[in-house]
C-alpha cells in the first residue's frame, strides 16, 4: 500500500488522571474512507481533536505525509490540508450562510490578509462559495444568518465549510447527527461523491451502523481510549472486541460505558 497520508503514532492524551486517548497508532491512506466507531466516551472526538490540533497530545506524534505535525497549531494544520467538520456545530452565527462558506474559500486563497482590495471584488471566491452551498442544498438560504438555520441546516453548512477548504484530509465528526430523515441523504450523497474522486483521505466518526456499512472501506474501533479493532468492515463488526465494546462483556463485570 502507498505511504499513509495521515498517521498517529502511540498518541496519548491525559486529562489529570484520566487517559482519554491511550497509545493509538493508526495510519490513514488516500482513497480510503475510514469509519471510527466506539461507544460514547470512547475518545473518538478527542482523537479527532488531537489530529486537527484543537488539543495538544500528551505524548506520541501526528504525521501528515510523513512530516511530524504534532507541534503545528490549528491554523497551520488547516493550511496543510486537514479539514474538519465539527460535531458540535461551530459556525459564525451572525454572518450570512454564504459568508460562512466564503470565508473558508478566502482562507484557502493566498490573499486572505489583503488589506486594500474590496472583498466583493474577489468574485471567484463568491462563486466558489455558491458552488459549495449548492452541494449541500443551502443556496436558497444564502442570505440568511447562520444562526437562523435549522439544526440540520447548520450541520449541512458545517460540511459545506469544510468542503470549501478543499482539504486533503476530510474529518467528519458525526455529520448526520440530529438531522431530519430527508436531510441525511444529502450528506451521505456528498460523502459518496467525495469518495468517488478516489484520492481523498476521509475519516468519519459515526454512530449509525447502517451509515458506516454503506460508506466505510475500513473500520477502526476505539474503546476507553484504546484502539481495539481495525480492518475490513464486515469482519470488524462481527469481531468479539466490537461486540464487547458495544454490548459489554457477556458475563461478569460489565465494561464501563462513559
Amino acid at each position: 500500500m502507498s505511504a499513509p497520508v495521515l498517521e498517529t503514532r502511540d498518541l496519548t492524551i491525559r486529562f489529570g488522571g484520566h487517559v482519554a486517548v491511550d497509545g493509538v497508532s493508526c495510519a490513514f491512506h488516500s482513497g480510503t474512507l475510514t469509519a471510527i466507531v466506539g461507544p460514547n466516551g470512547a475518545g473518538k472526538t478527542t482523537y479527532f481533536n488531537i489530529m486537527s490540533g484543537q488539543l495538544p497530545a500528551s505524548s506520541g506524534s501526528v504525521l501528515l505525509d510523513g512530516e511530524d505535525i504534532t507541534r503545528v497549531g490549528v491554523s497551520g494544520r488547516a493550511q496543510l490540508g486537514i479539514g474538519r467538520a465539527f460535531q458540535i456545530t461551530n459556525l459564525f452565527p451572525h454572518l450570512t450562510v454564504h459568508e460562512n462558506v466564503r470565508l473558508a474559500v478566502q482562507a484557502k486563497s493566498g490573499h486572505a490578509a489583503n488589506l486594500w482590495t474590496r472583498w466583493s471584488s474577489h468574485t471567484a471566491w463568491i462563486e466558489r462559495a455558491e458552488h459549495y452551498l449548492e452541494e449541500v442544498n443551502l443556496a436558497g438560504q444564502r442570505n440568511a444568518l447562520a444562526a437562523s438555520l435549522s439544526h440540520g441546516g447548520k450541520r449541512r453548512l458545517e460540511v459545506a465549510i469544510m468542503m470549501a477548504l478543499e482539504p486533503h484530509v476530510f474529518m467528519f465528526d458525526e455529520p448526520t447527527a440530529g438531522m431530519s430523515v430527508d436531510e441525511v441523504p444529502v450528506i451521505l450523497d456528498l460523502i459518496h461523491r467525495l469518495k468517488g474522486h478516489g484520492d481523498k483521505t476521509i475519516l468519519l466518526v459515526e454512530h449509525k451502523m447502517d451509515v458506516v456499512r454503506s460508506l466505510a472501506d475500513r473500520i477502526v474501533v476505539l474503546h476507553n481510549g484504546r484502539l481495539v479493532a481495525d480492518g475490513d468492515p464486515a469482519a470488524v463488526i462481527a469481531s468479539p472486541a466490537v461486540q464487547e465494546a458495544y454490548l459489554g462483556r457477556p458475563a461478569g463485570k460489565a465494561a464501563a460505558h462513559g
Binding site: Q54, A78, A104
Partner: peptide
C-alpha cells in the same frame, strides 16, 4: 464571531 472557528479555517487569529 468565533475565533476558534476562524483558526480552524486556517486564519492565524
Amino acid at each position: 464571531e468565533n475565533p476558534m472557528r476562524a483558526e480552524a479555517l486556517g486564519y492565524r487569529v
